[in-house]
Simulated assay, not measured.
Amino acid sequence: MSQLNITSHAEILHFPKDGKPALAPNEWQVWGGSQDEGGLPDLEHGAHKVLVPFTWWLEHHHEADIASKATNGQIGVWFATDDDILKHADVIEAGKKVWPLVAAHFPIFRDGRSFSTAALLRDRFQWQGEIRAIGDVLIDQLLQGARVGFDSFALRPDQKLDVALKQFNLYSVTTQNSWRGLRTTRTAQAALDA
């Protein structure tokens, strides 16, 4: 695996399904999974929680130490844009019992494949836990991300968190169904009368 450096703010934007958007400390280190890094980061000192690449999880999840750390809430996984999660449905189903957090990586903001990952996790796998957007995450992606199933966002460091918080209040009418609920219902006649 190649070296991967994913940076973000020290805070994440957390937007639970039935809650309001708020800033929260980013407690998770994103690890690229490179063997050059000497294996899994030390979880006893420094960052105590780590997101590992799904491909790394596939290779190591049977190890007792790894499974124990995941069960204890110290290890979650992140999906690359080319990870075939449908091919590994059994691993995803088992992961639902141990992963405290999953994330989908945006290598560049123009690459929207991670929106599909979040939608698949919510719709096909009925994932109820947190799904975080990581990588090249911009303010412009927040509304779309919230619709498909993301409920936390590790924004790129140059993005303004105060502006990001306001994005979810821009529109009072929802014209599409989403993971968060059905679209705003108005009859055609009511729209004409307005």
Rank of each mutant, 00 (worst) to 15 (best):
G33P: 04
S34R: 02
S34L: 03
G38T: 01
L40W: 03
P41A: 02
D42T: 02
L43D: 02
A47D: 11
H48R: 15
H48S: 14
L51N: 08
L51Y: 09
V52M: 10
P53N: 10
W56T: 08
E59P: 07
H60S: 07
H60L: 02
I66L: 06
S68R: 15
A70L: 07
N72H: 14
G73Y: 08
G73W: 06
Q74K: 15
I75L: 11
I75W: 06
I85Y: 04
I85L: 15
I85M: 08
K87G: 03
H88P: 00
V91K: 12
V91M: 09
E93H: 12
K96Q: 11
K96I: 03
K97Y: 11
W99Q: 00
P100A: 02
P100C: 00
P100F: 04
L101S: 06
L101A: 08
A103K: 09
A103R: 05
A104Q: 05
A104L: 06
F106I: 05
P107D: 06
I108L: 15
I108N: 15
I108D: 15
I108W: 14
S114E: 07
A118T: 05
L120N: 11
R122A: 03
R122D: 01
D123I: 07
D123A: 14
D123E: 13
D123Y: 13
Q128E: 14
Q128S: 12
E130Q: 12
D136C: 05
V137Y: 01
Q141G: 09
Q141D: 04
L142G: 00
L143Q: 11
L143H: 02
Q144A: 14
G145W: 03
V148L: 07
G149S: 00
A154C: 06
L155P: 08
P157G: 02
D158H: 10
D158T: 12
Q159N: 10
K160L: 09
K160N: 15
K160T: 08
D162K: 12
A164N: 01
K166Y: 03
Q167E: 12
Q167M: 11
F168E: 10
N169L: 06
N169C: 00
L170P: 04
V173F: 13
T174I: 10
N177R: 09
N177Q: 11
